[in-house]
Simulated assay, not measured.
Amino acid sequence: MNKDKYNSLPDDLKKVIDDNSGADLAAHISKVFDVSNAKAMDAAKAKGDIMIDIPDPLNDPDWRGPLMEGSQHYLDEVNATGLDADNVYEKAKAASSACMV
């Protein structure tokens, strides 16, 4: 949420957001998604689907091109609505890089 918008809210609404967001909630939700993902993977394997792990797809020559093309297509669609998707994407990449150790 935009910090200025958050600061414009009354305290009771800020409390609702604070009580339902943050690192603790994100950690909990990631565990829920991990369980859901494991169940989906098990179901796919039980059907005979083959899982292929591509640890670093953006540096894999077979995957980089299609991934970059798909990402650009999505950004172009969002930009066409008048939103600045490219700017948001660049900021997200910078934030991600800043978190890498």
Rank of each mutant, 00 (worst) to 15 (best):
A27F: 02
H28M: 11
I17E: 04
N37E: 14
L13I: 08
D42T: 15
K14T: 00
A44Y: 08
L13S: 05
N20K: 03
A26H: 06
A26S: 08
M41F: 13
M41S: 13
I17W: 01
K15C: 00
N37C: 13
K31F: 08
V35H: 13
K14M: 01
S36M: 14
S30Y: 08
V16E: 00
A40H: 07
A43D: 15
L13Q: 13
D34N: 12
V32K: 08
I17Y: 08
D34H: 13
A23F: 05
D42I: 13
I29W: 12
A26E: 07
V32W: 06
S21Y: 04
F33E: 09
G22D: 06
L13F: 08
K31H: 10
V16Q: 04
S36I: 14
A44M: 14
A40C: 09
K31V: 03
V32D: 07
N37Y: 14
G22S: 03
D34M: 12
A40K: 13
K15P: 00
K14I: 02
V16L: 06
A38R: 12
D24S: 07
A38N: 10
L25H: 02
L13A: 07
N37H: 13
L13D: 07
F33Y: 14
A40Y: 07
V35D: 15
A43G: 09
D18Q: 05
A43M: 09
D12G: 05
M41P: 05
A38S: 13
S30T: 01
I17S: 02
S36E: 15
F33D: 10
A38L: 12
D42C: 07
I17C: 03
S30W: 05
D19L: 01
A38G: 10
I17T: 01
K39G: 10
A40M: 13
K39F: 10
F33I: 12
H28P: 00
F33L: 12
F33W: 14
D18V: 03
A23E: 07
D18P: 02
K39L: 14
D12F: 12
V16M: 01
S21F: 02
N37K: 15
V32F: 04
K31N: 11
H28C: 05
A44G: 12
D24E: 11
D18C: 04
D19A: 06
A40P: 06
